[in-house]
Measured scan of single mutants.
Amino acid sequence: SKDTIRINGIDIDVKDLHEEWKRLVEEALKRGDEELAIELLERALKE
């Protein structure tokens, strides 16, 4: 798994994120759902 995830052309540092969150965000991006990916990231970062 990578340490960054690219959303809207912005590389976001996710190395401190739990693997499960990372996977969910990557799944959302694979489906092209950037809005969901951002929402998941925000939730993950609050934890």
Rank of each mutant, 00 (worst) to 15 (best):
V25A: 03
R43L: 15
R23G: 08
E47Q: 12
E47I: 08
V25M: 11
E35M: 13
E20R: 13
E42A: 08
G9K: 02
K30D: 13
L40G: 00
V25D: 00
V14W: 11
L36E: 09
A44N: 02
L24M: 10
H18I: 08
D11M: 07
E42D: 12
A37W: 02
K15Y: 08
K46V: 09
V25E: 00
L36K: 10
L17I: 12
L40N: 00
A37Q: 00
K15V: 06
V14I: 15
D13E: 07
L36Q: 11
L45Q: 11
L17E: 00
E39T: 11
K15A: 12
V25G: 00
R43A: 13
L17W: 06
E42R: 12
K22G: 05
V14M: 09
S1I: 13
H18M: 08
D33I: 02
R6S: 14
E35R: 15
R31S: 10
A37F: 02
S1G: 14
R23I: 11
A37Y: 01
I38R: 07
D33P: 01
I5P: 01
I5F: 06
G32Y: 04
E35V: 14
E42N: 13
E42M: 09
V25Y: 03
N8H: 09
L29W: 05
K22Q: 07
D16V: 07
D16G: 15
A28V: 04
R43S: 11
E35C: 14
N8F: 04
I38W: 15
E42L: 07
I12G: 01
K46H: 10
K46C: 08
H18S: 15
D13C: 05
E27S: 07
E26C: 08
I5K: 01
G32I: 01
R23K: 13
E47F: 07
K15N: 09
T4W: 04
G9W: 03
N8V: 01
V14P: 03
E34N: 12
D13T: 07
E27D: 13
A28W: 03
V25L: 14
T4Y: 08
G9Q: 03
V14N: 02
E27L: 09
T4R: 03
E35W: 09
L45M: 12
L40E: 01
A44Y: 13
K15T: 15
K2S: 15
L29V: 09
I7D: 02
G32H: 06
K22I: 15
A28R: 00
I12Q: 03
E26I: 15
L41C: 02
S1H: 10
E47G: 09
E20W: 10
I10V: 14
E42C: 05
I10P: 01
I7R: 00
D3W: 00
L24E: 07
E35P: 11
R23Q: 11
L40R: 02
I10A: 07
A37T: 02
V14L: 10
E42W: 04
R23V: 10
K2H: 13
K2R: 10
G9S: 03
L17S: 01
E27H: 06
G9C: 04
E39L: 15
G32L: 04
K22N: 03
E34K: 09
H18F: 07
L41T: 04
G9P: 01
D16A: 09
A28F: 04
L17D: 01
E26S: 11
I7P: 02
R6D: 03
D11N: 06
V25I: 15
D13L: 07
L45C: 08
L17A: 02
E19M: 09
A28M: 05
L40P: 00
N8G: 10
L24D: 04
I7L: 09
V14R: 02
D13K: 05
G9I: 02
E34S: 12
A28K: 00
V14F: 08
G9D: 06
G32R: 04
E19G: 08
A37H: 00
E42G: 06
G32D: 05
R23W: 09
L17F: 06
K15L: 06
E27R: 04
E42V: 06
A37S: 01
R23E: 09
D16T: 10
E20Q: 11
L45I: 11
R43V: 11
A28C: 04
A37P: 00
E35G: 13
D33E: 09
A44E: 02
L41F: 05
K30V: 09
D33V: 02
L29K: 02
K46N: 11
L36A: 12
D13R: 04
K46W: 10
K22R: 15
K46L: 15
E27N: 08
L40C: 03
D13M: 07
L41I: 14
L45D: 07
R23S: 09
I38K: 13
H18N: 14
A28E: 00
G9V: 02
L40S: 01
S1D: 13
L45P: 04
T4N: 05
R6Q: 12
L45V: 08
I38S: 10
E19H: 14
E20D: 13
D11R: 03
K2M: 14
L40I: 13
E26G: 09
K22A: 05
W21T: 14
R31G: 11
L36M: 11
E34P: 11
E26A: 11
E27V: 04
E39A: 14
D13G: 05
E19Y: 12
I5E: 02
D16M: 12
L29F: 05
D13V: 09
I38L: 15
L45N: 12
G9Y: 03
K30Y: 12
K22L: 15
K2Y: 14
I38D: 03
R6C: 05
D3L: 03
E34Q: 13
E39C: 12
E20K: 13
H18V: 08
E19F: 11
R31E: 10
N8W: 02
E47H: 07
I38M: 15
N8P: 02
E34Y: 07
S1T: 13
L36S: 07
L29M: 09
I12F: 15
K2A: 15
I10S: 06
E19T: 11
L17P: 00
D13N: 14
I38A: 10
E26Y: 15
D13S: 13
K30W: 11
L17R: 01
I5Q: 01
A28T: 04
E34F: 08
R23F: 11
V14Q: 02
E26V: 15
D33S: 04
L24V: 07
S1L: 14
E19A: 11
L36V: 07
E47T: 07
D33H: 08
D3R: 01
A44M: 08
E34H: 12
E26N: 15
I10R: 09
G9L: 03
I5V: 09
E47A: 09
H18E: 12
L40Q: 01
T4E: 06
K30C: 04
E47C: 14
S1V: 12
